[in-house]
Simulated assay, not measured.
Amino acid sequence: MRTITLIIVHCSANRAGSALRLADIDRYHRSLGWKGCGYHYVIPTDGTIETGRTEAEVGAHCKKHNRHSIGICYIGGMSADGKPADTRTDAQRTSLRKLLEALHRKYPRALIVGHRDLDPQKDCPCFNAVSEYADLQPH
């Protein structure tokens, strides 16, 4: 069993309204030579929570942090003109919170962060996950 200390929120860096789904990310990640989707969960614009890697598997979503984290990716993160933006739909916001609440119950000591909090070169997930989910952070 892995020790989970981080729950990392990502965006797919696609324009708002993208129809991308987990299967598309899985195909892309396999084309890179990976064993499949690097995220544990993907949330398309309709708010469906799609399961990628099992939580028991090490992800491939954040260098130096994969061994002890769960990776969640929402589809979007770029405005229509290609700039970083919080493009989450209401359905994605609802599903992401629901998933984070469940993961927080399962891993109460895990810190919820955005990818950008671990790699300052990134804008991902294009919103402040630490402050948005402050009520779910370990005390």
Rank of each mutant, 00 (worst) to 15 (best):
M1A: 12
R2V: 07
T3A: 15
I4N: 01
I4E: 02
I7A: 00
I8K: 02
V9W: 07
H10T: 05
C11M: 05
C11V: 05
C11Y: 07
S12G: 00
A13H: 09
A13D: 13
N14M: 10
A16Y: 04
A19P: 12
A19L: 13
L20C: 05
R21P: 06
R21N: 07
L22Y: 02
L22W: 05
A23F: 01
A23G: 06
A23R: 12
A23P: 09
D24P: 11
D24S: 07
I25S: 05
D26I: 00
Y28Q: 13
R30I: 06
R30M: 06
S31H: 10
L32E: 14
W34T: 13
W34Q: 15
W34P: 10
W34V: 03
G36Q: 05
Y39I: 00
Y39T: 00
Y39M: 14
Y39Q: 14
Y41C: 02
V42R: 14
V42A: 12
I43D: 06
I43E: 05
P44A: 08
P44R: 08
D46H: 02
D46I: 09
G47K: 04
G47Y: 03
G47A: 04
G47H: 04
T48Y: 07
T48V: 11
I49A: 03
I49Q: 02
T54Y: 13
T54C: 15
E55H: 00
E57Y: 00
E57L: 01
A60V: 11
A60S: 15
H61I: 08
C62L: 04
H65K: 15
H65W: 15
N66G: 08
N66M: 09
H68Y: 11
I70Q: 00
G71W: 08
G71Y: 08
I75D: 00
G76P: 06
G77V: 12
G77T: 11
D81F: 10
D81C: 10
G82V: 13
G82R: 13
G82K: 14
K83N: 15
P84L: 08
P84S: 08
P84D: 06
A85K: 15
D86Q: 06
T87W: 10
R88E: 11
T89L: 13
D90E: 15
D90F: 14
A91D: 07
S95D: 06
L96G: 01
L96S: 02
K98Q: 14
L99N: 04
L99H: 04
A102C: 04
L103P: 11
L103I: 04
H104I: 03
H104W: 05
H104V: 05
H104R: 12
R105I: 13
K106H: 10
K106W: 05
K106I: 08
K106Q: 15
K106A: 13
Y107F: 09
Y107I: 00
Y107M: 00
R109M: 07
A110S: 12
A110D: 13
A110Q: 08
L111F: 14
I112L: 03
V113H: 05
V113D: 05
G114I: 01
R116M: 08
L118D: 09
L118P: 06
D119W: 05
P120H: 12
P120L: 09
Q121W: 13
C124T: 11
C124S: 14
C126R: 01
C126M: 01
F127V: 02
N128P: 13
N128G: 09
A129N: 13
A129G: 06
V130N: 03
S131E: 15
S131P: 00
S131R: 15
E132H: 12
E132S: 01
Y133I: 08
Y133C: 02
Y133T: 05
A134V: 10
D135E: 10
